[in-house]
Design a protein around this nucleic acid. Structure first.
Length: 287
DNA sequence: TGCCAGGCCCTCTTTAGGGCCTT
């Protein structure tokens, strides 16, 4: 159920989300319309956010989820697992100092509402616009959601894609040391826990393994997302280093890698990690 | 003044160092 109750106050400032790659300014004052627009991901959306802490906490109370128990019980994983490829653009590499400026998701089961994309207001200057083309002026605006505005929407969107009693497998390139720590820190700053039924899969070691299986020396071939895309003959759709464009590339790369490595869904899920397994940053080593 | 990201993997290796990957 997406509504989650009717007694909440709708007082947050207006924001703009965009679920298909284009941002459109504008506001919506009707909460019911907001709900409809957030889920209507085949068109650009604009929204006034009215979600409060109480609503967010509803998602934090998800019961502990143990996918390994389901595997042991030989449950039909295809009917339980939602695979979502995602990518984040940030203000830099530091998970502590830098912030997310764009996030995009694609549910691999496809169909209506299968993609979600939005810019994120980092509330700081964007100094690496030369990388992704996202400028300070594009995101430091009242109609672009801050992370605390976005999290309830994101939780709702993912919940809307989730299968009853199932989990979500989020896939990203370098997920373990980049996207997931950034996501964890963004949630932590907002006082929200990553749901325990969110699992994560990193395609970086998959790419390394696939190259190895082809006989390449590990050090001789790049396993960056763009290098894998070129190697696998996948066309670039949009600009590299924009979140949705990279998500589309990664979705194709991920499916090719699972085929090359003959990885069944159970294996993918079993090797996945949870947000709680992402440790706190270590002190810089002496080397 | 010193720091400025962090984890994984490879090798000229494991009591270490350096490159890759993400923005």
């Amino acid at each position: 159920m997406l509504d989650g109750g009717n007694s909440r106050k709708w007082t947050r400032r207006s924001v703009t989300t965009n679920t298909q790659g284009r941002n459109k300014s504008g506001q919506c004052s009707d909460p019911r319309k907001l709900r409809q627009e957030i889920l209507d991901v085949t068109v650009s959306t604009s929204a006034t956010l009215n979600l409060n802490k109480i609503e967010t906490s509803q998602y934090q109370q998800i019961q502990h989820f143990d996918i390994r128990q389901l595997i042991a019980q030989n449950k039909d994983l295809a009917s339980l697992v939602t695979v979502i490829v995602f990518d984040t653009e940030t203000t830099g590499f530091s998970r502590e100092r830098d912030h997310i400026v764009e996030i995009a998701l694609q549910d691999l089961q496809g169909g209506e509402n299968s993609t979600f994309q939005t810019l994120v207001n980092p509330e700081c200057r964007v100094l690496n616009s030369h990388i992704h083309g996202i400028t300070t002026n594009m995101v430091n605006r009242p109609d672009v959601p801050r992370m605390e505005d976005l999290i309830p929407i994101l939780l709702k969107y993912v919940k809307s894609r989730q299968k009853p009693g199932g989990c979500v497998l989020f896939v990203a390139h370098n997920a373990r040391t980049f996207d997931v720590p950034f996501l964890c820190n963004a949630f932590r700053r907002c006082g929200v826990d990553i749901p325990s039924d969110w699992l994560f899969k990193d395609t970086l070691p998959m790419g390394r393994e696939a190259m190895k299986s082809e006989g390449s020396k590990p050090s001789s071939r790049s396993i960056s997302l763009q290098a894998l895309r070129e190697h696998l003959g996948i066309p670039l759709d949009g600009s590299a280093h924009r979140a949705m464009s990279d998500v589309k590339v990664l979705a194709a790369v991920f499916q090719r890698l699972t085929f090359m490595l003959k990885l069944p869904l159970a294996s993918l899920v079993e090797d996945a990690f949870t947000a709680s397994e992402i440790g706190t940053p270590k002190k810089k080593s002496s080397r």
